[in-house]
Design a protein around this nucleic acid. Sequence first.
DNA 1: TATGAATGAGCGTTCATTCAT
DNA 2: TATGAATGAACGCTCATTCAT
Lengths: 187, 187, 187, 187
Amino acid sequence: MTGERVLRADAQRNRVRVLDAAESVFAAYGVDVPIEEVARTAGVGVGTIYRHFPNKRDLVDAIVTERMRRLAGQARTRAAQPDSLALFEVADWIVAEATVKKHLGATTSTPASDKPPALQAIAADLRATLTDLLTAEQRSGTIRSDLEPPDLLMTLYGLSAAAEHYGWDETARHRAISLAFEGLRGR
Amino acid sequence: MTGERVLRADAQRNRVRVLDAAESVFAAYGVDVPIEEVARTAGVGVGTIYRHFPNKRDLVDAIVTERMRRLAGQARTRAAQPDSLALFEVADWIVAEATVKKHLGATTSTPASDKPPALQAIAADLRATLTDLLTAEQRSGTIRSDLEPPDLLMTLYGLSAAAEHYGWDETARHRAISLAFEGLRGR
Amino acid sequence: MTGERVLRADAQRNRVRVLDAAESVFAAYGVDVPIEEVARTAGVGVGTIYRHFPNKRDLVDAIVTERMRRLAGQARTRAAQPDSLALFEVADWIVAEATVKKHLGATTSTPASDKPPALQAIAADLRATLTDLLTAEQRSGTIRSDLEPPDLLMTLYGLSAAAEHYGWDETARHRAISLAFEGLRGR
Amino acid sequence: MTGERVLRADAQRNRVRVLDAAESVFAAYGVDVPIEEVARTAGVGVGTIYRHFPNKRDLVDAIVTERMRRLAGQARTRAAQPDSLALFEVADWIVAEATVKKHLGATTSTPASDKPPALQAIAADLRATLTDLLTAEQRSGTIRSDLEPPDLLMTLYGLSAAAEHYGWDETARHRAISLAFEGLRGR
DNA sequence: TATGAATGAGCGTTCATTCAT
DNA sequence: TATGAATGAACGCTCATTCAT
């Protein structure tokens, strides 16, 4: 039993190494990079990757899910103590994450029926948090009351896509988000 | 001479068929679709495609260039008689075009040094037109004077990406653009 | 009838242009060069080439046949007035011809059952002439009497292959042939 | 460690199978034969070939290099105890090897700048050995003193080409080499 | 269990040959 | 009849996935 435990720990460490390697490799060269490259970066054989992730798609989804989980958690925490900056900050985190081939953004903003259930649940959670933040801002009058959650989501999607495309640093990101929020704020 | 004309006409028709097929196939399945699929859709052999376009990349570029040429032309014409709606309309055309894998948007908004010169020139032309329209609006006070052309381009990029992702119809598109422009307009 | 004659003359001219183009193109880039390249060089369409030569192989054979015909003719003429230099001179012509991918040499020296009858006949004629010259030299004692025609042919083949490979000029060619003939001459 | 060894052994066996298959297939049908055919003959998938040899050219070069390495080694050993038969024997080995599309001969006799460094080095070594043998024979007066190494190389090239073309057996080979060497020997 | 060698379907591209003009 | 556009089989090569070790 202890032996099994040790093995599990080993496997777990490998899983993490693969995930880390995949994340950086995909971010750098796109998801079309061969699995072999990920294996090389992770310092494991391809077989090991396939043991943890039945196919390439699953690996990509796992990365997205992980990133999203982190994001959704942070967002929920931040939303627990809402203030006038909360929505902006959460939006900033989301846009900042927009790297790995837009996959994150894409998954954030739609039910995405072809995504694994786990991911869909997390995305739904994030959307719920965003909706909460939106409602709060509308209640305090800082965002136009005629906006719907999808308006916010689509704005975040556009910002994420642009962030990925232009490779925005923090300054550029803040400027862009501010500009977009100006529109949401209304007169 | 007439004989040559006839031949040309035939080849030209095939070129157009290929272009049309490629446009719809790429739009539907992405540019990673096999050339063979494009050929099948066009009702020609792969060799015919390669006769007209030395390689796949050139085919994609040709589509983007064509779309962009149309757009840049329309935009320039519209910009010749500028009024308070001109920028919005041009933006609407651009966002409406956003289909073929975001390539159009991507090319509109950056110098994209790896694109063929013809495309770069057209993109530059479109950017110039947009800058003109922006300046005009700023002069008439309908757009914040502290905005730079890149702010407009990035906004259009984000909108285009979202349009492609959500598959917006005209109504959704207008709403999104209005919202974004609200931000550009300022208080 | 006259009209037909004119047409024939036209066709004949095209045939020659194709043959000339093919000869120089094949010599320069090898027989693997696309037919299209030959057509371009000849200033005709590929269809014209295929009208004269049903397939690529036939075109190559036609060139070889033509070269060989010239060679066999020259050789026969020279052999009509045999002297102590005749064999050397004929050998020199043959080796000098060795360019187009060794095809000439290859065809010169074997029955080559997969070659067109016309070519085989000419090759046989050339071989006969060489045999005559060999016999004459043997009779006058300048070549070892124990040599058989195949010994001569194989020597010429080797020299031709080397000529093609090294791109010998006249000087190098003469030196090599002299050296080889020294061996044939015997003590 | 043992595990690694075993794996290596397996891969090594496949490498050899591929090399053997390629050698015989290329010898039989020429190097233009599809890689697929080599794979079929070796009883492996094409991917396996490409795992061992990045591209077709490398496979061909590997075969040539291997043959040449064997040859250069044998030659050097034989040249260490030179006697009046040494040069003839080495020449015989070289000519006997002349199969795989003349590539071997071609590489033996020229610097061949487009060949891999390893092959060039081995070819240079073989040439050096031949030069040594030539010099020795000249010193003992069995070969004309006015001959240069290139004369010998070109003779071997011609003999190899002929050997490949005619498919000489040992008897024919010996006769041809003797004949050629007669010329090198001089009066 | 981890490894990485093996597999083979699939892709981009070429080019001999055919055929509409 | 000459033209060159169209065809499509075939090739070199890649890479997701499987499997022997």
